[in-house]
Write a protein that binds this DNA or RNA. Sequence first.
DNA 1: TCTATGATCGTA
DNA 2: ACGATCATAGAG
Length: 197
Amino acid sequence: MLKTPLPRSFYLRPTLLVAPDLLGRCLVRRYRNALLAGTIVEVEAYLGRRDPASHSYRGKTERNSVMFGTGGHLYVYFTYGMHFCCNVVTEEEGNGCAVLIRALEPLEGLPVMRKLRGAPAAGDDRLLTNGPAKLCQAFGIGRADNGADLAGDRIYLTRGTPVAGRTIGTSPRIGISEGKEFPFRFYIPGNRFVSRP
DNA sequence: TCTATGATCGTA
DNA sequence: ACGATCATAGAG
């Protein structure tokens, strides 16, 4: 596995090209002294000001300001009073586009992930990272990581094993009330760590 | 100030 | 199906 971070140019493309291209890539996270890693198996695209399901739909606020920055940064938000979720910002400054990472297949650092997830994931490693809030907890991602540069050395993506376009599954996005008609969820069919089949 | 609600998860 | 639990945004 190549350990060098993907270049900035990877993220500066149209979001609907980047999102499926993230499948099979590897998320690497340095957490204290541990190295955590996982393969991305499920994502959702959010298309900025023209997308009613996007946090950036109503323009820039303090909460979503990272979304309006340059691609290649991490947008972390807090929701439902208890969960963090993380997105990869795409395209150029001002567009407000991002891709939500919804599920990972753990590769390295499983013992640390089990400790961070605690009892809810006991006895089944699928429960470590098969959801956007679960994977953030397993990787120790929180408020402090909002705005992190993916070209840095704390959190970044590596090339991994890209997935051929024709084998990618699509569906409507999960948990939204508007924009349900668009198939902007992308996943690896049959992978055990996808949040919903 | 005040209030409704959410890109969710775990338990029943 | 439902409760937990609170930051955020928009209204007043």
